[in-house]
Simulated assay, not measured.
Amino acid sequence: MAHYVGLDVSLDETSICALDENGNTVWQGKTSSKPEAIAKALSVKAPEAIKIGFETGPLSTWHWHSFKEMGLPVVCLDARHAKAALSMQVNKTDANDAYGLAQIVRTGWYKEVEVKSMDAHLIRALVSARSNLVQLRTKLSTHLRGILKTFGLFVGTTWNGAFEERVRELCFGIVDLESIVEAQLSVWRSVCEQIENLTRQIQAYVRSDQVCRRFMTAPGVGPITAMAFKAVIDDPGRFRKSSSVGAYLGLTPRRYQSGEVDKSGRISKCGDSLLRYYLYEAANVILSRVRKWSKLKAWGAKLSKRIGKRKARVAVARKLAVILHRMWVDNADFKWSDAQPA
């Protein structure tokens, strides 16, 4: 008899529930969250498992790839869909969640999530690490500016890495302040060095990757945006239509329709927030800095006059994501327009 298995995964232990075709419990228990331990328990307690389901989470990528290598019939469930079903239970326990997940995979009422490759996660980790360090550098420099303002010292605008020199110049001779500032400047300098190292890694990867170089033929798209887009999408074949990429990245408006009520709200902001930020910045560059004319820029310029610059940037970011996906599918570079603005 076929078995359907639900896994409620936590950091140390995983609750397991195996059901038969009629929904009767075959076995319930706990084991270590290591994929090998889970597979060993299933081989003994549910040897006829035809579906093994668990929710998306911090460990889902590791478990999914490990189970696939072992040849197990694993499916990764959308946590939002699973939550809607599990919320019907009176008592919230790990055992009950595992039982609910097993029932979900048995009935087929679930949405399977496409798990990205480990290479895509590695690329995304590189882009994310650089972004976090850039935020830390900004936070340190802002804090230093605030400290110096207290004593009537103003850093002002600095260019080409002159921030450190300007700060030292301002607090020169103030012994107590120098020691406080020096501690933070040493960290700021180290963060800047690591940002440069990660930036060089990104540039080296992009130079050797044909897909990223093709993305960079589009206006406003640099190495970081190209690399982030490739990491998040991973496989362009996941999308039947290129227009679906905008919704996947949270760049389409929410909608509520019931009876006579039909309202559209702000963008959903689901999906990868970092890539969404990079696409928005690329859209801003297209509308304000790129001088070469294109249909995308013309469309964004008309839209900006009608609905405002802020909403136009979001619309251009969405359209840029769709264009990048189509370029990837068609193996084609960005098509510029020969027409000039009126």
Score class of each variant (00 low, 15 high):
4 Y>I: 13
9 V>E: 01
9 V>Y: 07
14 T>S: 09
19 L>V: 13
22 N>K: 13
24 N>W: 08
25 T>H: 08
34 K>V: 06
35 P>F: 10
35 P>I: 03
39 A>W: 06
41 A>L: 03
52 I>L: 12
56 T>D: 04
61 T>W: 03
61 T>R: 03
80 R>W: 06
84 A>Y: 00
85 A>T: 01
88 M>I: 06
91 N>L: 10
92 K>T: 02
96 N>R: 09
96 N>S: 11
96 N>M: 11
106 R>F: 11
107 T>S: 12
107 T>K: 10
112 E>L: 03
113 V>T: 08
120 A>C: 09
121 H>S: 04
126 L>S: 05
126 L>E: 05
132 N>S: 08
136 L>G: 02
140 L>W: 10
140 L>S: 05
141 S>L: 07
143 H>D: 03
150 T>L: 10
153 L>G: 03
155 V>N: 06
159 W>A: 12
163 F>I: 13
165 E>N: 12
166 R>E: 07
171 C>I: 10
174 I>N: 11
183 A>H: 08
184 Q>A: 01
193 E>G: 12
201 Q>F: 02
203 Q>L: 13
203 Q>F: 09
204 A>W: 12
205 Y>V: 07
208 S>Q: 15
211 V>G: 12
212 C>H: 09
213 R>D: 09
213 R>H: 13
219 P>T: 14
225 T>I: 10
228 A>M: 11
234 D>E: 14
234 D>M: 13
242 S>E: 14
242 S>A: 15
245 V>Y: 01
245 V>N: 07
247 A>D: 06
254 R>Y: 00
254 R>H: 00
264 S>A: 06
268 S>G: 03
272 D>Q: 01
274 L>H: 09
275 L>A: 04
278 Y>M: 04
279 L>T: 00
279 L>G: 04
283 A>Q: 04
284 N>M: 09
286 I>L: 06
286 I>K: 01
289 R>G: 02
291 R>L: 14
292 K>R: 14
292 K>E: 14
297 K>D: 06
302 K>W: 10
304 S>P: 08
306 R>E: 10
310 R>Y: 07
314 V>C: 14
317 A>Q: 13
322 V>E: 14
326 R>W: 11
329 V>N: 10
329 V>I: 15
337 S>I: 03
338 D>A: 04
